[in-house]
C-alpha cells in the first residue's frame, strides 16, 4: 500500500506492506541509521521521532506513518555531531550500534524536559539499552551535551 510521509523534513512516497513495521520500511528505503536490535520494543536502537515523539519503530505499523513526520538521525545532523563529540570526548561510545537511537531519544528529551538531573536523564533514557558501556560515561556525555546546548 502507498503512504505519504515527511521523512526528515522531505516529502516521501513509499510502498509499504500492510503488516510491516516502520523499522523495516525505513531500512528498506535506505534509512540505515535505524537499527534492529531486538524486534520486541525492548532495546531502543530503532528509536525515531513520529510527529516529534520518540517511538520504537519496530513496534509501529509502517502504514501508521501515513500523513505524519518521521525523523531519524539522518535528519538531526547537528545534534548528532554535537552529542557525538561529547560521547567521544568522554570515551562513552563503543560499538556505536546504540548511538543513533540514543541521539534521537536525547533530542526528544532535551525538547521535553527543562533541566533534567541525572536521575531524570536515566529515567527518560531507560528504554535505550547499551551493552558495551555501563552507562556512566554515556550519562556524563549527555549532561555535557545538554549543558552545551543551553
Amino acid at each position: 500500500m502507498n503512504i505519504s510521509l515527511e521523512l526528515n523534513g522531505r516529502p516521501a512516497n513509499w510502498d509499504v506492506e500492510p503488516g510491516e513495521a516502520l523499522l523495516e520500511a525505513l531500512r528498506r528505503h535506505g534509512v540505515l541509521s535505524v537499527k534492529r536490535g531486538c524486534d520486541t520494543a525492548s532495546c531502543g536502537t530503532c528509536t525515531v521521532l513520529l510527529d516529534g515523539v520518540p517511538v520504537p519503530s519496530c513496534a509501529v505499523p509502517a502504514p501508521r506513518a501515513d500523513g505524519r513526520a518521521v525523523t531519524t538521525v539522518e535528519g538531526l545532523p547537528d545534534e548528532a555531531a554535537r552529542l557525538g563529540a561529547c560521547l567521544a570526548a568522554e570515551g562513552a561510545d563503543q560499538c556505536g550500534f546504540c548511538a543513533p537511537g540514543l541521539v534521537v531519544a536525547v533530542v526528544a528529551m532535551s525538547r521535553e524536559l527543562e533541566h533534567p538531573d541525572e536521575a531524570a536523564i536515566n529515567h527518560y533514557l531507560a528504554g535505550n539499552l547499551c551493552r558495551c558501556g555501563g552507562y556512566v560515561s554515556q550519562t556524563r556525555a549527555i549532561r555535557r551535551y545538554l549543558q552545551e546546548a543551553r
Binding site: V55, L125, G127
Partner: peptide, 12 residues
Amino acid sequence: VENIVGVQVRNI
C-alpha cells in the same frame, strides 16, 4: 506505568 520499558514504548 512509569517504569515500563522506556518512554518510546510508553508513547505508543
